[in-house]
């Protein structure tokens, strides 16, 4: 309980800090909207002549993409701060998280609440409405609840990976590189239906870095698409996979923390 109260206090402070730079804040949102629209336009151009990408049409691909963008938006709000852990460690400013009487993981996470993900929300909600009309998706309460659960699962999976990547900094004092090798390509791969990739890659994104559960499996359930090599309705496991993956990530981070030696600078 104490932590929830504290979280909101820290978050409020963070938001106030970010709103000091209103123009920058606004431009970041515009920037994000442009880059997501850019990916959507690329998909449209790609399917202009071909109609289908591995049985997925343009609107189905948009839907798949929008789920990823929505959960990434929440993920930025909650966990993006972990990307800068290596800078804190290098500069020696990480030590201050250790001298306070709260859990350092929690404290570090609550330090920054990145509100600039409005871009992601505007984009994904617009796409959801557009695609629902085009594909006549019938939104039942069960469907909506499932989508919400899947998004929570997606946030935990992507957040978990951010946490694991940041934990590398405890051993190597570097983690930014890992972000660009692991997270960035993984997010790009999953913008497209996994069915098009070689079987090994599909297995990898299902069971090693479980990004398949962020959008591909849940979208397949809602749109009734087939998922070759995987059991039907595997998408229902998204929230569970998210929780398990995040717990693993948390323990890796804590393990790293126990190994942490200050750089002292």
């Amino acid at each position: 309980m104490r932590y929830i109260d504290l979280y909101f206090k820290l978050v409020a402070a963070g938001i106030r800090a970010q709103l000091q730079y209103r123009f920058a804040f606004f431009m970041r949102i515009v920037g994000m909207l442009t880059s997501y629209a850019g990916t959507a336009i690329t998909m449209w151009v790609m399917l202009y002549q071909f109609q289908e990408l591995g049985t997925w049409n343009f609107y189905e691909m948009l839907f798949l993409f929008a789920i990823a963008v929505l959960s990434w938006g929440f993920c930025i709000i909650l966990f993006f701060h972990f990307r800068s852990l290596d800078t804190y460690i290098l500069n020696g400013t990480f030590d201050r998280f250790l001298v306070r009487p709260i859990n350092p993981f929690f404290h570090f996470m609550a330090m920054k609440f990145d509100v600039a993900s409005f871009g992601q929300f505007i984009f994904s909600i617009f796409i959801f409405i557009w695609v629902s009309v085009e594909l006549h998706i019938h939104w039942t309460i069960a469907n909506v609840l499932f989508l919400l659960a899947a998004v929570i699962g997606g946030v935990l999976i992507q957040g978990g990976l951010l946490v694991i990547i940041s934990a590398f900094a405890f051993w190597t004092t570097k983690s930014e590189q890992f972000y660009w090798v692991v997270m960035y390509p993984a997010r790009n791969l999953t913008n497209y239906p996994l069915v098009i990739y070689p079987k090994m890659v599909q297995w990898f994104t299902a069971f090693v870095v479980p990004f398949g559960f962020v959008n591909y499996f849940p979208a397949s359930v809602i749109l009734g698409k087939e998922t070759p090599y995987f059991p039907e309705n595997i998408g229902y496991f998204s929230p569970l996979v998210g929780i398990v993956f995040f717990i693993i990530a948390y323990y890796i981070w804590m393990l790293g923390l126990s190994r942490y030696k200050s750089t002292g600078s």
């Binding site: 790609m46 497209y192 098009i196 990739y197 070689p198």
Partner: peptide
């Protein structure tokens, strides 16, 4: 790998 797969599927 990604673009190779996409074009193979297209």
């Amino acid at each position: 790998l990604m673009w190779g797969s996409i074009w193979t599927a297209l």
